[in-house]
Design a protein around this nucleic acid. Structure first.
Ligand SMILES: [Mn+2]
Ligand SMILES: [Mn+2]
Ligand SMILES: [Zn+2]
Ligand SMILES: [Zn+2]
Lengths: 137, 137
DNA sequence: GGTAAAATGCACTTCCATTGCAAGGTGTTA
DNA sequence: TAACACCTTGCAATGGAAGTGCATTTTACC
């Protein structure tokens, strides 16, 4: 029934009111959010709590961090069964230069990237910048 | 003879002692550098001057900015005849998780990336993280 | 040399990320 | 249920990097 509780419990994270609220907030958003976004959505809560909640989610593969080049870290819920840490599962991110929103393109996996001899690839970050579908219409 | 002077002049940038020094510093480095790196190399100079010098270089396509995901902006000299702004000329960057250094892989161009219908790609940032050749030996 | 424009240096600000510590909750076990 | 350990939350403070305003110095040009 209460899916979110189950998800948290499956990761051995305590279910708290704050965590449920933040999880719901992330789930309803279709774009990556900054800590400030969360802060604005929960003005009663302390910034530190929100920060540490997100960090807890991140450490437990509930959210992944996105560096879209704006200089501000963004976060988005992982897909269910996603394996963020596996290189072949990495999707690309799109940042709109017009509306400034960043989205996960979860079904656009990052192609295999060749690196020179001697280099070992462990992880790839691919961000495309441009105009999103809402803004290009 | 004095190549650097020529480069600066060709971009209509005044030749100053500071700019020559910083250009030389960047040229001798084979890795991308942070503002702090430059700061440490020129302790007599003011941080703001170094900052604005780099910005001037950047605006005139003498250096390009690199966001390798560490959260600290890095800079590297552009290749001669490079067209940083042209999407097809973009090369990938490699960040070593061991020595923390970031390098331009200038002859590894970024492949064409497909984006969903309605999205327009203007720019791509591709950073591979892993172990560099010096560290993997 | 004199002048205007550009570069430099200093002080200050802003913004985001991160930490220490104390207080409040929760769950567990005797 | 009472005590306890452990986790979570809130508040205050810090740190690092980026950026700005303004006065002073330097440069290019006449
Ligand atoms: Mn994503
Ligand atoms: Mn580069
Ligand atoms: Zn948009
Ligand atoms: Zn290395």
């Amino acid at each position: 029934m209460n899916k979110i509780e189950n998800i948290l419990e499956s990761k051995n994270i305590r279910v708290t009111a704050m965590r449920l609220l933040i999880y719901k907030f992330l789930a309803q958003k279709e774009i990556a959010v900054t800590l400030s976004d969360i802060e604005n959505a929960f003005e009663k809560a302390d910034r530190t709590t929100l920060y540490r909640t997100i960090k807890t989610f991140e450490e437990n593969d509930i959210v992944h961090q996105i560096d879209d080049g704006t200089g501000i870290t963004k976060y988005a819920l992982c897909e269910k069964d996603c394996n963020c840490e596996i290189e072949t599962d990495l999707h690309l991110h799109f940042h709109c230069n017009n509306c400034n929103e960043t989205v996960c393109l979860t079904d656009h996996k990052i192609p295999q990237i060749k690196v020179p001899d001697g280099y070992i690839s462990e992880n790839v970050n691919l961000v495309v910048k441009g105009i999103c579908d809402k803004c290009s219409g």
